[in-house]
Design a protein around this nucleic acid. Structure first.
Length: 1142
RNA sequence: GGGCUUGUAGCUCAGGUGGUUAGAGCGUUACACUGAUAAUGUAAAGGUCCGUGGUUCGAGUCCACGCAGGCCCA
């Protein structure tokens, strides 16, 4: 037996079987070895974190990665894919804390940093077994023998090298970010701490709407033209103490603003103010609208008149300059202008946001984007500091309020009393209140109110937090923004919108990358600093060790520091050192001027870890320079679209900024895997799908095929197990059936393919040429889709070919060729053609369904492997994954033939439809069909496939009628596409005219190629209409896709008898099968003559019947034969004996 | 609140540059076929193309504004 036959197929079992084969023969390793010396195709693995268990979405994401690596291997590239593990970061820390029952506060108290980090290191790799298992079971080929692991010293050393590069280029600097800060506790608060219950409290604060006086110039001209006198922009704040630090006003680009003429409610001076149109009602009463301006001065001033004198968009206000509101401290660069921000709303205030980059996170970001400086003062060491100190007090430069707490809550009762006496008032007035008073008197306040809102408080001191600038280390991405934007344009994004939209916008609005994290488990920032700002950035372990040695020579260090340094040197010489905290914190260096330098305690953002992987995975530049050079940048990466600002960005930023290169050429950003109802999967909700269960039950191939072909990778996938069942039955079932059909008969015929001895094209039957034409077209299109990184379309093409063309048409129509007669050339051609189709399908599908593809390939070709090896022909490979992608050969493609076959399919379908409506079953032969054809080429195309149509629908003859026959009725339809551009508005008239054309008119049109629509001046051309045939009088007619078919349903006696004979054959065949006869058994039949019509039909078709059922004799008896059985036929009762003849 | 994205049959999805009757598979129903048979074929039913406006002779397709879901960011 050349070909294995399979009774029932379990796709999970196939995967297991093939996996065992892969493992035993190291097929993955070989698939890389066989391409040694070929061009490389580089893939970067975005590392998963192994501290969680894998989910079904990982199967999806990794299938995408796997597909293109396999595809490129087939295309002749060597594809190395190094696996990796992401090991640092907050999730690991949180998990450890949860398991130990501790909080961040306890680190260094209940548990040492050393122990804590040790615990993290153990935890993070806890689930690697599960991950490895999934990787294997889903058929993902990635090198897990030598993965990169981000916590390794080598990895960290590479990162340090990169950081030093940034440092040397002046792109790594110490700045600040705005973070929640508790002056009372003297510490920053994490978002976690801010989210603790009870931190947000309702408080009443003094809110203030300030008037910012606009400077008249060309930008603001339109405001002054519309008004007389001074123009102010109104901005609202609940923290008046931040006003001395104001350096910009932010408006919303699309918000509508108005200029209102009115009076200041405190000074009663005439003013013109700008605010959002939607918020007019908050500041002005309806009574004062368009009120009496003239009489205001002499009135009781209870109703302030106002009127709108101009309107504009926020974008019109951009760039307008204004006078500094509280000019205590001058900025170092031009400030005080209107900028655009996306966080402005019209829910509160005036639709204009007072912007202070030192005391607001949004403010900081938007100011940085627009190059607006912060209001800062120099401290005693010359360092820039904000106008509020770390205890929450104004600095001395804010003269009116020097050294006063900005929040009343920071004062004790005693302090308050002392202040009250100093102020000389009955009651202590807070800084906010006194700023309000000051502004009121200076005609700079438009509205002052007590305002109740919720505000976060420090969970330890219960005092309000400040948003305050805290030290942070940054990478100056803004300096290289243009370059990053330019480089991005050379990346092929799938889908494009992620690249231009989400990623492109992100780059356009770039702010400096904040690297600092105040944590314990991560890559330490390799910067050592002295108290007065001398610093060194360490770029390698060697540098560090040299630095330590140098420090030890000096006498700056104390005894303990020396000891710790020596301890590090000791661990280094014994190769037990660790670049994590706390060890690196215990390294003390000495600056050039002989000052002690300690490490900045920050860790770096874990995203830098993953973005550094192109370099760090190879320990570059300390090792593997050649490998790195050959594998940079990546040809292809793929991750979830949520990584756009994560991994995609960090890869891009590091490569772009340091090496002026993109990090990846092609990127597929994938969507989410949702549950079948479109909800996010989560273990908590219990709607998560277990990947191991799924793979075990359905097999990796149907699972992967379903995920890939159901939705394009970048769309969200609604994951439904029923979908896998469908794919399994429809696609894999059909394909396996087709293979089994091939194997069954090939084995019976003892057929064995040869790669060289093939039936030449000239001798191939039409059917074979057709399916091969389809096959070559398929090869081309599938390749194009894979090249375009669209696996969905590639898979769907393969699926359609297998189900619709190969199985439902080629095999179904060619069945006889396989089972009848001796091994003729025709039969040989059928085997060869089918086998070629199947082998090719195995190749084309193998990137998506790697186990099944290999299984199919091997089932089809194992029997000739030895010969193929000997002759070094294409099928010599043990695995489909070593083969070469089939070459597209246009000479096999016959478009004309493909059209013909489509016509035959259409015509057959039409006749089936007619038969059905008239309840004439296919087994009843009919005499003829009539096909009206309007062109000779159509006639030729149908004639080509006449035999196929005839046998498919069981008719004797096909006749054609054309114009000359005179019986053809034609229908004419307007061709809108052609008419539209010519006539436009007159379309309706013309369409009506065309629909009313008579048969005679049509004739004229066809003859003259043009026609004047009656009662109009519209001269239409032949191509302006579509002419179709409609009716054949006296026949049963149906049309579709421009083809009309008429069926002759007269059943002659002869046809009727043939129909009966076919029915008879059918019953005998069923009987043979039910009784368990072998396919090759010859039989004898005895039939009781109990009906003349039946007997006559049998007699008339004796030869046909005998041949079909392999009867050596067929007797009609007048008496019931011995051991007769009764078989029902539509109108008859067969009484027969059917016996095997020896 | 902002950016990106999705919305077509009960379900999952197709529907270049606008062209008048919007398709496929699954599911449902009916019928047929019967040496691929735990397979296969044919057909029927099933649609406010998310909504509202607009552009156009003509809109599922283009534009605007909404609604609903998703992701990321605030």
């Amino acid at each position: 037996m050349q070909y294995k036959e399979y009774k029932s197929v379990n796709y999970a079992a196939i995967a297991d079987e093939v996996l065992a084969f892969w493992k035993e023969n190291k097929i993955f390793e070989q698939s890389i070895e066989v391409r040694e010396g070929s061009p490389t195709f580089t893939f970067f693995e975005g590392p998963p974190s192994a501290n969680g268990t894998p989910g079904i979405h990982h199967v999806m994401a990794r299938s995408i990665k796997d597909i293109f690596c396999r595809y490129k291997t087939l295309r002749g590239f060597q594809v190395k894919r190094k696996g990796g593990w992401d090991t640092h970061g907050l999730p690991v820390e949180l998990q450890v804390e949860k398991e130990l029952g501790i909080t961040k506060e306890d680190i260094g108290k209940k548990i040492t940093v050393e122990e804590y980090n040790q615990k993290c290191r153990e935890t993070v790799m806890r689930f690697t077994d599960q991950w490895d298992d999934l990787t294997e079971k889903m058929g993902y080929w990635v090198d897990l023998e030598n993965p990169y692991i981000t916590y390794k010293n080598e990895y960290i050393e590479s990162i340090w090298h990169l950081l030093k590069e940034f440092y040397n280029k002046g792109l790594l600097y110490k700045g600040y970010t705005i973070q929640p800060y508790s002056p009372a506790a003297g510490t920053g608060l994490s978002s976690h701490e801010l989210n603790m219950p009870g931190t947000y409290k309702d408080v009443k604060d003094t809110s203030l709407t300030a008037q910012f006086k606009v400077i008249e110039n060309h930008k603001s001209e339109f405001l002054f033209k519309a008004s007389e006198g001074e123009v102010f922009i109104l901005a609202w704040t609940t923290t008046p103490w931040t006003l001395p630090a104001n350096s910009a006003l932010t408006v919303g680009k699309n918000i509508n603003y108005v200029l209102v003429k009115t009076f200041n409610p405190y000074t009663y001076l005439p003013v013109n103010v700008v605010l959002a149109k939607d918020l007019i009602g908050k500041y002005f009463s309806e009574k004062g609208k368009d009120g009496d301006f003239e009489g205001f001065e002499s009135s009781d001033k209870k109703i302030i008149p106002w009127t709108i004198i101009a309107e504009c968009k926020g974008s019109d206000l951009e760039g307008i300059e204004y006078e500094q509101l509280l000019p205590y401290v001058q900025p170092e660069a031009p400030a005080f202008r209107v900028i655009i921000g996306d966080f402005v709303t019209t829910e509160d205030g005036t639709g204009v946001v007072h912007t202070s980059p030192t005391f607001g996170a949004d403010d900081f970001r938007v100011a940085q984007q627009h190059g607006i400086p912060s209001i800062m003062v120099k401290d005693e060491t010359g360092k820039d500091v904000p106008v509020v100190d770390r205890r929450g007090r104004f600095v001395k430069e804010i003269t009116d309020f020097a050294l006063e707490y900005v929040k009343e809550a920071y004062l004790t009762d005693d302090e308050k009393e002392a202040e009250r006496i100093k102020q000389g008032r009955d009651k202590y007035l807070s800084v906010d209140e006194r700023i309000a008073i000051k502004l009121k008197t200076e005609n700079k306040a438009f509205n002052v109110q007590r305002y109740e809102h919720t505000y976060p408080h420090c969970w330890r001191t219960d005092k309000p937090v400040l948003y305050y600038p805290l030290d942070s280390w940054f990478i100056r991405t803004t300096a290289m923004k243009d370059k990053l934007v330019e480089l991005n344009k050379t990346i092929n994004w799938k889908p494009e919108s992620t690249g231009t939209g989400r990623f492109g916008n992100w780059l356009e609005n770039l702010v400096d990358w904040n690297l600092s994290r105040s944590r314990y488990w991560g890559t330490p920032l390799p910067i050592w600093r002295s108290e007065d700002g001398e610093e060194v950035c360490i770029g390698s372990v060697e540098e560090l060790v040299n630095g330590i040695k140098h420090a030890l020579k000096d006498d700056v260090l104390n005894e303990e520091q020396r000891k710790k340094n020596e301890s590090f040197i000791h661990s280094f010489t014994h190769s037990t050192f660790d670049l994590h905290r706390p060890y690196v914190d215990e390294v003390f260096l000495v600056s050039a001027s002989g000052k002690l330098m300690q490490r900045e305690t920050d860790l770096i953002d874990v995203w830098f870890d993953s973005g550094a992987m192109p370099f760090a995975q190879w320990h570059y530049p300390f090792e593997n320079k050649e490998i790195f050079d050959a594998n940079y940048p990546a040809d292809f990466i793929s991750e979830g679209v949520d990584q756009t600002r994560g991994w995609f960005f960090t890869l891009h930023a590091i490569s772009g900024m340091l090496y002026d290169s993109i990090a990846f050429k092609n990127v597929v950003s994938t969507g989410l895997v949702l549950d079948k109802n479109g909800n996010k999967m989560s273990k908590r909700l219990g709607n998560a799908i277990d990947p191991f269960d799924t793979l075990g039950k359905y097999g990796a191939d149907p699972t992967r095929w379903y995920m890939i072909t159901n939705a394009e990778p970048w769309d969200n996938l609604r994951f439904n197990l029923d979908g896998i069942t469908e794919v399994r039955n429809k696609f894999f079932g059909t394909l396996t059936n087709t293979y089994n059909f091939f194997a069954l008969y090939a084995n019976l015929d003892n057929y064995k393919m040869s790669e060289t001895d093939r039936v030449p094209y000239a001798n191939l039957p039409e059917m074979d040429r057709w399916i091969l034409s389809k096959l070559y077209t398929l090869i081309k299109e599938v390749g194009e889709q894979f090249d375009d990184y669209n696996p969905t379309k590639a898979g769907r093409l393969v699926q359609d070919f297998v189900c619709d063309q190969l199985s439902n048409w080629y095999v179904r129509l060619c069945r006889r060729r396989f089972w009848q007669g001796e091994m003729t050339e025709n039969k040989k051609a059928a085997y060869e053609t089918l086998q070629q189709c199947l082998v090719t399908v195995a190749q084309l599908m193998s990137p998506i369904a790697p186990f099944y593809g290999d299984w199919l390939y091997k089932s089809l070709t194992d029997s000739i492997r030895e010969e193929a090896k000997a002759s070094n022909s294409p099928l010599r490979h043990e695995s489909v994954h070593f083969t070469d992608w089939p070459t597209y050969d246009a000479s096999w493609v016959d478009a004309n033939l493909e059209t013909s076959m489509e016509l035959s399919q259409t015509v057959s379908s039409l006749i089936h439809s007619l038969r059905k409506t008239h309840k004439i079953k296919v087994r009843q032969p009919l005499q003829r069909i009539l096909i009206p054809v309007l062109s000779e080429s159509t006639r030729e195309q149908i004639r080509h496939v006449e035999d196929i149509i005839k046998s498919e629908v069981n008719i004797k003859a096909i006749e054609y009628i054309d114009d000359d026959s005179g019986i053809l009725k034609k229908k004419v339809k307007p061709n809108f596409k052609a008419l539209g551009p010519k006539y436009g508005k007159d379309m309706k008239l013309i369409a009506e005219g065309i629909n009313q054309l008579s048969a005679e008119d049509l004739k004229v049109l066809e003859k003259e190629k043009q026609f004047l629509i009656p009662n109009s001046q519209f001269l239409i051309a032949l191509e302006d209409v579509e002419i179709q045939t409609e009716d054949v009088p006296g026949w049963l007619v149906v049309s579709d896709k421009g083809i009309t078919v008429a069926l002759d349903i007269n059943i002659s006696e002869e046809l009727r008898q043939e129909g009966i004979a076919r029915d008879f054959v059918n019953r005998i065949q069923n009987y043979r099968k039910d009784t368990g006869f072998e396919v090759t058994d010859k039989i004898s039949i005895k039939l009781l003559n109990n009906n003349e019509a039946l007997t006559a039909a049998v007699e008339a078709n004796r030869e046909y019947i005998s041949q079909e059922v392999q009867a050596l004799s067929l007797e009609v008896l007048s008496e019931s034969p011995a051991n007769a059985v009764e078989i029902e036929m539509d109108e008859f009762m067969l009484v027969v004996t059917v016996e095997v003849r020896a």
